[in-house]
Nucleic acid binder design. Sequence first.
DNA 1: CATGAATGAGTTTTCATTCAT
DNA 2: TATGAATGAAAACTCATTCAT
Lengths: 220, 220, 220, 220
Amino acid sequence: MDERTAPDRAGEPAAPDAAGLKRRAARDRLVRAGLKLSAGRPWARVKVADVAGRAGMSKGAFFTHFASKDTFAAYLLGVVLDQLAQRVGPMGLSPEDAEDLVAGVLAVHLRFFQLRPEAANLIIAARELSGRPGRRARQSLREHLDMVARLLRPALAAMDQPPELGRQLALAGLATGCGLAWLEPWLGGETALPGTGRERLARALSVGLNRTERPRRPVP
Amino acid sequence: MDERTAPDRAGEPAAPDAAGLKRRAARDRLVRAGLKLSAGRPWARVKVADVAGRAGMSKGAFFTHFASKDTFAAYLLGVVLDQLAQRVGPMGLSPEDAEDLVAGVLAVHLRFFQLRPEAANLIIAARELSGRPGRRARQSLREHLDMVARLLRPALAAMDQPPELGRQLALAGLATGCGLAWLEPWLGGETALPGTGRERLARALSVGLNRTERPRRPVP
Amino acid sequence: MDERTAPDRAGEPAAPDAAGLKRRAARDRLVRAGLKLSAGRPWARVKVADVAGRAGMSKGAFFTHFASKDTFAAYLLGVVLDQLAQRVGPMGLSPEDAEDLVAGVLAVHLRFFQLRPEAANLIIAARELSGRPGRRARQSLREHLDMVARLLRPALAAMDQPPELGRQLALAGLATGCGLAWLEPWLGGETALPGTGRERLARALSVGLNRTERPRRPVP
Amino acid sequence: MDERTAPDRAGEPAAPDAAGLKRRAARDRLVRAGLKLSAGRPWARVKVADVAGRAGMSKGAFFTHFASKDTFAAYLLGVVLDQLAQRVGPMGLSPEDAEDLVAGVLAVHLRFFQLRPEAANLIIAARELSGRPGRRARQSLREHLDMVARLLRPALAAMDQPPELGRQLALAGLATGCGLAWLEPWLGGETALPGTGRERLARALSVGLNRTERPRRPVP
DNA sequence: CATGAATGAGTTTTCATTCAT
DNA sequence: TATGAATGAAAACTCATTCAT
């Protein structure tokens, strides 16, 4: 499913013997089940028993793969952020136009959460994580923001915008996509952004950034 | 605290006698306690006992004011949306410039959730409400969006934008503010939008809407 | 409503002044409300607040009339047993035929509980009463049984049956009426005794008693 | 304890392995504990924690066996009705004399509730069950009445009584036994039917039915 | 390793009763 | 005396986690 190594469990020998492969397959089934289930309900309503059941194993087996439900949540968050990164990353390869790049990156964020409501639910859930899983979740998000910021840096420079704006835009993309992800379906059809709504938003923001008079940097 | 009438309990005669005032004061203490506590933690971690305790009364007394924790949540959501409306409403009175109005309305939304994290938590919590409180919460939010859309209509017309965009912008403001409200504090200082970040975002969006080529309406 | 004196409260001066009359009227309203409400639901589901409300007064006022809900229950039981006695008592005046008398007394019991489901509910509730109200409830029932036994004595003698049978028949009448009272409506129409079912049962029992060979008294 | 299958929990494979047997034993301990406790107090005063404790397990374990206290009540009712049926059923095998059969069936009912006060408490409790457990409880009782009615049919025919009387007699037996079950012990020794009292009642009713002039069927 | 039964802390809600006004 | 707001002791139920088999 992905290249991440086991989350909190003792360090699985890399030995790709039959047993090891089976085990990895089982873990992937758990991950898929976890994502599927958290797409439709808040994380607190996702039961370990349901995840295990849908993955075709017992509750006990779940805990041989993940030390706790929290650990699992942090792991899932990492997985979805990886998937998001895989959509965002390639955009940096063709930076023909600064406005396009910014708009594109934002739009990808907004669309991603629409397609993957589990991402929003997991980010919301992350705030309840404490201890190591909490730190890990935070870490995953920070890394994502950094990655996006790096990606946007040349575009922002071309727009004559300060480089800090990169992280802020990434954060805004995450926050907006995430917020829309549960507000829209919950409020019901007529209150949703139409198919092109997200693109328009992203482009408008990008255009606006490019054409607004530059903010005067505060003198420190 | 506010002019809303009692939520689900029998219809408090308007009699503003001593007892009535005391009761209303007690209810307001509950509301304040509820808002305070839900500012710092997700709604599920707000215990009725804590709310009542902080309001200086017993658990039982809480239930003489609100029929259930869910009812209380829906009521609190109504309260914060009212407060938000009180900040947004007056902006419509001085619509000198379309761009300014749109930017202002958005900025107010973004700032509001920063100052009132409980608003974000309550909106998130609303999704878990079922039955009457759930319907009520949805209703409150829809009404808020309608109000904002009405307010923005002239500005959007001046920008030659379709009127539907009003609701979508309101939704985006809510979603973004809401998302930022818990992502920022949780991710920690360096990852936050600086004081002026929200304004810049709001203005850029407004400017962008005004200067982007108009979306070609799909021919039905 | 009835001639019973106040249940557990200090001894109301017999003075029938205006205030006293009003108070007695209020108490009667409580009694009527209590009977009405306990007709439709088990006693545990009858709320003091509902009784008081239906009687047009506050919960607090209720407790100036009855020391506790238990006291109230015991009192209501006394009231319904009085009413039952008023139907049974006169039958003793025309003891033309022994079989008829026994059958009649039984039939009255069976029919009474059909018309007054609250009687059954109150008897069931009585078992949960403790302390003084419990003793009082038991006392009321015992007195009723004694009364019926006294009434039946001549008839039983004529049938050449032992006098103890009187109390036992009374008990059986109570038990059967009471049991039918909640089984029939709960099981639904087709499982009910038809209108004449109770009479037939009562008469058959009476006839049977008269024509069965006498039980040989156990030699002590 | 009995052959009934699990009540509302997933359908226990018939696998009679060690674990399965242990589990079934645990459930039986719960059932025994439930019956024991409800023999001495009304169902509402039977606490899940007590039942579980007496069965040697935790509250939580109880809920792995029964979905709710209501489900448990309905199940217990089924168990006692089964036990009653096991006493009544065999009587139909030696129908030498109609009067004897009717008297016997009634007497068994009356005695059963004397020995098993929990039966009466559970029947009373059944009226408060709602939803599926409520329907199930009703169903159990109706089936019992049908069974008894079937059993009595030949005897009633021999007595030249209408067949509907079967169900009515069953109902009367249930109601009387049930009523006596809590009235007698509660009223105290002297007010009880002596050991032979129930038999006499049953026989008298049977004799009476056989010798009373037949009710004239109403002309429709 | 896998299983799934058992655990038990934690939370909402009800309602008879009290008592200040 | 009347009111009705406040009290607080219950009690059912959930579910992540453990552990004997």
